[in-house]
C-alpha cells in the first residue's frame, strides 16, 4: 500500500543493498595445522593456486562478454575451531606468501565472523532459514524423520528397532537421495552440536555455507547487510583475533567483496565439506529482498546468474596437502 498517504515504517519491510562484483574468488582457507606447518606450506599452497586463479579470472572475463569483469579475492582464517597465533604474526606472513606467488588478497575474513559478527548471530539466523527439501509424500505436516541439528539430501533410513518377541525384525532399508539419478549419493550433515552447558558449536560445513552466502551478498539481518568489509587502516595487525574486524578490506582499490558468483580454490581434502555446503545451500531460503536485488542488478548488467543459490558457487579442487 505504498500509494497511501499514511505510512508506518515499522509496518513495511526494507532491505539494504550491497555492492556486487562479478566473481568472488577465494584463494584458500587457513587452519591451525597449515600455520603450524610453517610458511613453506602456505608458499606451496599459493603456488598451486595461482594457475587456477588465473583460469577462474579468465572464465569470469569471458562471461562478462567484453566488459570489465569485477573480481575480488578473499581468504578465510579459522579463528573459530582453534585459536592459534595472532593476526600480527599470521596476516603479514600470509600476505607476503601470496604476493610472492603473484596473488593479491583483497579481503581477509575470520571464520568466527560467520558464527557471530558484532552482536549479530549470523549462523543462528541462517539456521532459521533452512527449509528442508520435502521427501515425496510431504503434504504439509512436519516430516516424521526430521532431526534437529542435521540436514540430509534425502530420506534417512528408517530407525531399526529391536525385534519384539514373535515379530520378525524389519529388513534394513536404505536411505534415499531425493534428487537421485537412478542411484543415491546420500549425505547427512551435522549442522551443530551443543555441549553440556548448552554452548552451541556450529559445524565447519555450516559456517562455510554462511561464508558462501556472505560472498554472494545474500546475508541480511532485519534487512541490514551483514559482514560489511571494514577498511584496514594503520600499518600493523592486532595481537588478538577479536580486535580484527570479521571482514577486512586489505586492498583499498579492490572490487566489491560480494559477487554474483563465487569460486573457491581449495585442496581436495575439502571435498566432503564442500559437498555438505552444497546440500545446506540447496535448502536455505535466502532473504527474498536480497535475492531480488541481485536479480535486478544482474539483469540490468545482462549478466546471467543461476536461479538456484547453490549453483552460483563453484570450486577448483587441487591435489594438495
Amino acid at each position: 500500500m505504498s500509494d497511501a498517504v499514511f505510512r508506518e515504517t515499522a509496518a513495511e519491510p526494507r532491505t539494504q543493498s550491497v555492492p556486487l562484483a562479478h566473481l568472488s574468488l577465494e584463494l584458500g582457507h587457513l587452519y591451525m595445522e597449515d600455520f603450524e606447518a610453517g610458511p613453506g606450506r602456505l608458499r606451496r599452497h599459493f603456488e598451486e593456486v595461482r594457475p587456477w586463479a588465473e583460469a577462474a579470472r579468465a572464465a569470469a572475463v569471458a562471461r562478462a562478454g567484453g566488459r570489465r569483469a569485477r573480481i575480488s579475492t578473499c581468504f578465510l582464517v579459522d579463528d573459530y575451531f582453534t585459536r592459534f597465533a595472532t593476526p600480527a604474526e599470521v596476516v603479514p606472513m600470509l600476505l607476503a606468501e601470496a604476493e610472492r606467488a603473484g596473488l593479491t588478497v583483497d579481503y581477509l575474513a575470520r571464520e568466527s565472523g560467520c558464527a557471530v559478527t558484532g552482536k549479530t548471530p549470523v549462523a543462528e539466523a541462517v539456521a532459521g532459514r533452512i527449509v528442508e527439501s520435502p521427501v515425496p509424500g510431504s503434504h504439509g505436516g512436519r516430516p516424521p524423520t526430521a532431526r534437529t541439528g542435521w540436514l540430509a539430501n534425502g530420506e534417512r533410513a528408517p530407525v531399526a528397532r529391536a525385534p519384539q518377541a514373535m515379530k520378525r525384525a524389519a529388513p534394513w532399508q536404505p536411505p534415499r537421495e531425493t534428487a537421485a539419478r537412478r542411484h543415491s549419493v546420500f549425505l547427512d550433515t551435522e549442522l551443530w552440536n551443543d555441549d553440556a552447558d548448552g554452548h552451541r558449536t556450529w559445524s565447519c560445513p555450516f559456517l562455510a555455507a554462511v561464508w558462501q552466502l556472505a560472498r554472494l551478498g545474500l546475508l541480511r539481518d532485519a534487512g541490514e547487510a551483514v559482514l560489511v568489509p571494514q577498511q584496514h587502516t594503520g600499518t600493523g595487525f592486532p595481537d588478538d583475533w577479536d580486535d580484527l574486524p570479521s571482514l577486512v578490506r586489505l586492498n583499498p582499490r579492490a572490487d566489491p567483496f560480494s559477487a554474483y558468483r563465487t569460486c573457491s580454490i581449495v585442496p581436495n581434502r575439502f571435498l566432503p565439506v564442500e559437498h555438505a555446503v552444497r546440500v545446506v545451500l540447496d535448502q536455505i531460503e535466502v532473504d527474498p529482498g536480497a535475492l531480488a536485488q541481485v536479480a535486478e542488478r544482474s539483469g540490468k548488467e545482462r549478466t546471467a546468474v543461476p536461479d538456484s543459490v547453490a549453483d552460483r558457487v563453484s570450486y577448483v579442487f587441487y591435489a594438495g596437502p
Partner: peptide, 16 residues
C-alpha cells in the same frame, strides 16, 4: 519466528 527478520508492527488504525 526468525532471528534475522523483523516482525511488522502497525498501530493505525489498530495494533497489529
Amino acid at each position: 519466528l526468525r532471528a534475522d527478520e523483523r516482525v511488522l508492527l502497525s498501530e493505525r488504525p489498530g495494533l497489529y
